[in-house]
Every structure is written in structure tokens, then in C-alpha cells.
């Protein structure tokens, strides 16, 4: 039986790092209700795995791994059931740069999303390699390509507006 102290500690840590869950679920979910489900699933999986968290890595790194693993499984299953994102989900209003960036990241493939999110959240190439499983050299190459892809997409959108 898990003690209440452990549960309180977990909740406190999760509250402090809820931005990670927010970003991962926002990027991998396909609509608002799916996002809610995915958030609950990430919280549940993190809680289940918390007993095995030995502190070998930072809590944020560990939480990222759990959230991404859960999101990848969730996204794959959902794509099988109904492919693509809902068209009215997260439509980025013109001028809202944050929403536009999110929208462009969501269009990347699963592995690209993972790499760019970790990079933007300040993880070094070595950590990204460990979390994603991609070799360190390829992380650098990948990142360069993803950034180019994103910049181009943003530029195209700005030109259209």
C-alpha cells in the first residue's frame, strides 16, 4: 500500500511539472476530449511507475519519458481507430504565435515532435538521445532538419497572411 506521504509528494511534484504534461498532451492528442483522456492516462501511468522512480534521472526527465511513452501508445491506437486530427481542434488564430507554433509541431511525425519538444525544453542532445533512443549524432542532424521544416512552415504561413 502506498503511503499518503508518497502520494502527496507525487502530487506536489506533478503540479510543479504539469507544463510537461500539458505540452505533450496538447501536441499528441487529436481533439479536446482526447486531450483530457490522455492527460488522465499520463497521470495514471506516472503514478503507477512512480514506485520504480529511483531518482537516477531528474524527475522532469523521467516524467517526460512516461508522458511520451504513454502519448505514443495512445496516438498510435487512436490513429488506427480514426486517423488524423479533428479539423476544428486547435485552429491557430492569425497572430497567435504560440498557437501557430503548436499547430506546426503537431503536423510533424511522432519522432520529430518528441525531439523538438525536448530540445525546446532545454534538453541537450545527449539527453534527447537517451530519452528518444535516437543516436546523439542523429539528434543534431534531425534537429537541424526539424527547425528548418518548422521555420519554413511558419514563413509560408506568414506569407499567406
Amino acid at each position: 500500500m502506498v503511503s499518503e506521504d508518497k502520494e502527496s509528494e507525487f502530487i506536489r511534484l506533478l503540479e510543479a511539472h504539469s507544463g510537461i504534461i500539458y505540452k505533450v498532451t496538447r501536441i499528441y492528442a487529436k481533439n479536446a476530449s482526447d486531450e483530457q483522456d490522455l492527460r488522465q492516462e499520463v497521470v495514471y501511468q506516472a503514478w503507477r511507475s512512480y514506485a520504480n522512480f529511483k531518482g537516477a534521472s531528474k524527475f522532469s526527465t523521467w516524467l517526460y519519458r512516461v508522458a511520451l511513452n504513454t502519448a505514443l501508445t495512445h496516438a498510435k491506437k487512436d490513429r488506427k481507430e480514426s486517423p488524423g486530427f479533428d479539423s476544428d481542434w486547435q485552429v491557430a488564430p492569425a497572430g497567435d504565435e504560440r498557437a501557430q507554433l503548436m499547430s506546426h509541431i503537431r503536423k510533424l511525425n511522432d519522432a520529430e515532435k518528441l525531439v523538438i519538444m525536448l530540445h525546446l525544453d532545454g534538453y541537450g542532445n545527449e539527453e534527447i538521445a537517451l530519452i528518444s533512443g535516437i543516436s546523439k549524432n542523429h539528434v543534431a542532424v534531425r534537429l537541424h532538419r526539424i527547425k528548418e521544416k518548422l521555420s519554413q512552415a511558419i514563413k509560408n504561413e506568414q506569407d499567406e497572411n
Binding site: E15, S18, Y22, R39, Q40, V43, Q45, W47
Partner: peptide
């Protein structure tokens, strides 16, 4: 980022969501 409240997290701990891992 919308932060998760303690209540949200507690709901997630016992939520009956479909487990897929």
C-alpha cells in the same frame, strides 16, 4: 500552460480510463 491542480491529479490516480500501455 494550464497547470494541473491537486484535484485533477487525484482524479487521474483513480480514473477508470482505458489502460493501453
Amino acid at each position: 500552460a494550464e497547470s494541473l491542480s491537486g484535484a485533477d491529479i487525484r482524479a487521474g490516480l483513480s480514473a477508470k480510463v482505458k489502460r493501453r500501455d
